[in-house]
């Protein structure tokens, strides 16, 4: 769900439509909006599983401080999706625990 008209902020600015790949599924997004916003708009609320108890976690602070919304973006874990702008063709994965690094450490 998206708010196209906000009583204070006004009309939603029109941006280029792009596609993101989330766990293999394609979703629509607007270029430059936070990844987390696009995911929420697509109905995806679980962004990662916690390392110890493997519980679902999602957006919490939404300003880049709490790191509860971190996901694996283009092979790099621990990316804060609430402050990372979406770009066309990004590959996003739900992060399980500390995540898997695409690059060898």
């Amino acid at each position: 769900m998206r708010i196209f008209y906000h009583p204070i902020l006004g009309k939603l600015e029109e941006k280029r439509k792009i596609t993101l790949e989330v766990d293999g599924k394609k979703i629509a997004a607007y270029e430059g909006e936070p990844i987390a916003a696009a995911l929420l708009a697509a109905g995806i609320r679980v962004l990662r599983m916690s390392p110890k108890r493997e519980e679902p976690r999602g957006v919490f602070c939404a300003i880049g401080r709490c790191t509860d919304c971190v996901m694996i973006v283009d092979g790099q874990p621990n990316v804060r999706t609430c402050v990372t702008p979406a770009r066309d063709g990004m590959k996003i994965q739900t992060q399980k625990g500390l995540g898997k690094w695409a690059k060898k450490l």
Binding site: P51, L98, G99, K100, W101, L105
Partner: peptide, 10 residues
């Protein structure tokens, strides 16, 4: 000193 984000076991 500095500390990084949590990484898988090295």
């Amino acid at each position: 000193a500095m500390i990084t984000e949590a990484l898988p076991e090295l």
